[in-house]
Design a protein around this nucleic acid. Sequence first.
DNA 1: AGTATTCAGTTAAAATTCAGCTAACCGATT
DNA 2: AATCGGTTAGCTGAATTTTAACTGAATACT
Lengths: 224, 224
Amino acid sequence: MKILLVEDEHRIAQSIKKGLEQERMAVDVAYDGIEGYDLAIDEEYDVIVLDLMLPGMNGLEICDKLRQNKKETPILILTARGQVEDKVEGLNKGADDYLTKPFAFEELIARIRALIRRPQNIKDELLKIDELSLNVSSFEVIRNKKIIKLSSKEFTLLEFLMRHPNQILSKEQIMNHVWSYETDILPNTVEVYIRNLRNKIDKGFKYPLIQTVRGFGYKIGKNV
Amino acid sequence: MKILLVEDEHRIAQSIKKGLEQERMAVDVAYDGIEGYDLAIDEEYDVIVLDLMLPGMNGLEICDKLRQNKKETPILILTARGQVEDKVEGLNKGADDYLTKPFAFEELIARIRALIRRPQNIKDELLKIDELSLNVSSFEVIRNKKIIKLSSKEFTLLEFLMRHPNQILSKEQIMNHVWSYETDILPNTVEVYIRNLRNKIDKGFKYPLIQTVRGFGYKIGKNV
DNA sequence: AGTATTCAGTTAAAATTCAGCTAACCGATT
DNA sequence: AATCGGTTAGCTGAATTTTAACTGAATACT
């Protein structure tokens, strides 16, 4: 595991580095923000540990810039005690975790391990069918470069359809997966939602993507 | 996407439920093991999130029993910190992932997403006879690369024939299997449907696949 | 104001029946 | 063994009935 540690206080930096190396991690240290940023961009680290107060460029800036440049390396931020607002802002800027100084070394190790273990694919999940795409994490739906606004239920329904492309889904199945069991819904509600979806994602396009299969249900896909 | 959360501590359960709902998931909560098990069996969930320590029936038992009953719904187990042996046992019992409490909510979301994304049993059931194929899940019928549109009853009838290739099926048998018991239908109705089917899947092809066996019934298959 | 759900009337497609037709089967006749 | 009716099972075109799905608008919720 390869770690980048950005920390300007040499004594602290050396002690952390030593500790991590005992855990058999490879540690690079940068002593100012600019050096840290450059290393983070050029090298492939598994985790970046970032002090907030830094000469050159502060931790939040680094964080922000890295994310803007599509660097998705997990970032752990070190803050001085009580800088609560910084924590919040750090998470907003794309940091993955934070730790307050002073900390127990065990805690640091544990958190780094957690970040390493974390499934990297928190990347946006994109479902695609033909020229229609749905971004699960950003809630965006696009057909043919046109952005389409959906309500929450419409989105959920479309997501369910798109996770089963070209499969027939009965109204029953749809009711069971898109709604929870306490809420009981008339089958007609599904019909109404299908209509709303069609108005938004099919109307005005060359061909429809939502197909009715009378007696069985609906399916999504290009009809041949 | 529909999630079942089995967790006895109401406060925790509610907070998780709320969080998941913000991610546009439909969440059912069960507060003890037995209720959880029953729901898991009766409903169709996309993912089950299971606390280990539960009144009634513990998480491992639920997991075990579900798998024994051929429920293949992905299961994510929540364990208290340090119950490492439980994790191992959980995975043995058929769980798909585990997460240690306390966890970052992001982490939970990410893991649930990963389980949903996981290629489910997308087994398209394909029936084939000669150059004729029928896809039960997508409702598609193809002969010789030509896509054939069928009505619901036509499809059901063809499916019945194709599940018994080269067998003679009497009108009586067909009436009993393609129609429900109560509905009584004239034998002529079957004849009419056979005609409709022939018009769609035999007409215009080199040789017919549906054979009449006078006095006995019909069969499907290449006639020798 | 936007979303979720229901309602009630309409539309369109599929299901079923009907009535006349066709063709296979079979015994009687040549 | 070829031909003739008579009988019946199966075929067919079209009419009729039934029903699934669609739709515009109302209502309730937030």
